[in-house]
């Protein structure tokens, strides 16, 4: 038996002729934060809706805790906390009243659950302010409170930092990290903000035009990302000969007559520069270049940046 909390098999959603999600196979491991990264309209929300049974897949299957979601909703959904799209609450009620409604519907016996959830996200308990009077950031916090109120084992959060101020973003980030590290929760989080995913996720899935392009852990990503040392020299042909003969390096490429890229970051850069100079080459620049997540995203999606 595998250790996947969420697994999708060729999950597809088609609206008319347009495929919103196409043959998606994602694998979310237990106790990890999985970041689903993609541009606006890439299919992140549709995927999450299908994972929660809010949208019926055109084809394919959602498996949660080893069981197909279809037909097991009553067993599986109560173990999941979710935030999908904009926070949805009754505008004529206060935050406490709203959460009480959902707590009652969930049949929660813990009388302190509402207060605890509000405390967790920094919202006041029994405040008289109605939901309709809340700022976007407060609404988002309330939605997060709703997602965690019943102490779910799995959290599915669609763009949870939308509308939050920088301090709020940091708080929620640390809160989600804590949920995963200390309480062993599994979190699936979607975002179009690269830095957020980079700071929070253990595993990453890159989705573009409804298709999953890459899925790997951040450790694997670091290994796969394009890292090199760029040498700007007077003659790249001669520099190449020196690398091959003196250092037995073959993992390099010549960009033009002055630029050479060496792909081994472990290479003795100082000795290489000395060898170049001793052989009459003029070395004007040496840079260590590590590909950022954005560069990686661009490379994988074969297009522009995410924003």
């Amino acid at each position: 038996m595998n250790d996947y909390i969420i697994e999708t098999k060729n999950l597809t959603k088609q609206y008319g002729l347009q495929k919103s999600v196409s043959s998606l196979n994602i694998h979310v491991k237990r106790g990890r934060i999985y970041g689903l990264l993609g541009r606006n309209g890439a299919g992140k929300t549709t995927t999450m809706k299908m994972l929660l049974g809010l949208a019926a897949p055109t084809s394919g299957e959602v498996i949660i805790w080893g069981k197909p979601l279809k037909g097991n909703e009553k067993k599986l959904l109560p173990r999941i906390g979710s935030l999908i799209e904009a926070p949805g609450f009754y505008p004529n009620l206060t935050a406490t009243e709203n959460l009480r409604i959902f707590a009652t519907l969930r049949g929660m016996a813990d009388k302190h659950a509402v207060k605890d959830a509000l405390d967790l996200v920094g919202l006041p308990y029994r405040d008289k302010k109605l939901f309709s009077q809340y700022s976007l950031g407060m609404k988002q916090r309330l939605a997060i409170a709703l997602a965690v109120m019943h102490d779910p084992e799995l959290l599915i959060l669609d763009e949870p930092i939308n509308g939050l101020d920088p301090i709020g973003i940091a708080e929620i980030r640390s809160f989600i990290r804590q949920l995963c590290d200390e309480s062993g929760k599994t979190v699936l989080i979607s975002s179009h903000i690269l830095s957020e995913i980079a700071l929070l996720a253990d595993d990453i899935g890159i989705i573009d035009c409804g298709a999953l392009l890459e899925e790997e852990s951040f450790a694997e990503l670091e290994q796969k990302s394009n890292r090199h040392i760029r040498f700007t020299v007077s003659d790249t042909a001669q520099a190449a000969k020196i690398l091959e003969s003196c250092f037995r390096e073959k993992a390099f490429s010549i960009q033009d007559s002055h630029n050479l890229l060496l792909y081994s970051l472990d290479a003795p850069t100082g000795r290489i520069v000395t060898a170049f100079v001793e052989n009459g080459l003029e070395v004007s620049q040496v840079h260590t270049c590590v590909e950022s997540l954005e560069d990686y995203f661009k490379r994988v999606t074969g297009g522009e940046g995410i924003a």
Partner: peptide, 17 residues
């Protein structure tokens, strides 16, 4: 129309109701 207007339908279905 209450759920439609307030966007709470998704929260209810995720319970599930």
């Amino acid at each position: 129309f209450m759920e439609r207007d307030s966007g709470t339908s998704k929260n209810l279905r995720a319970i599930p109701v």
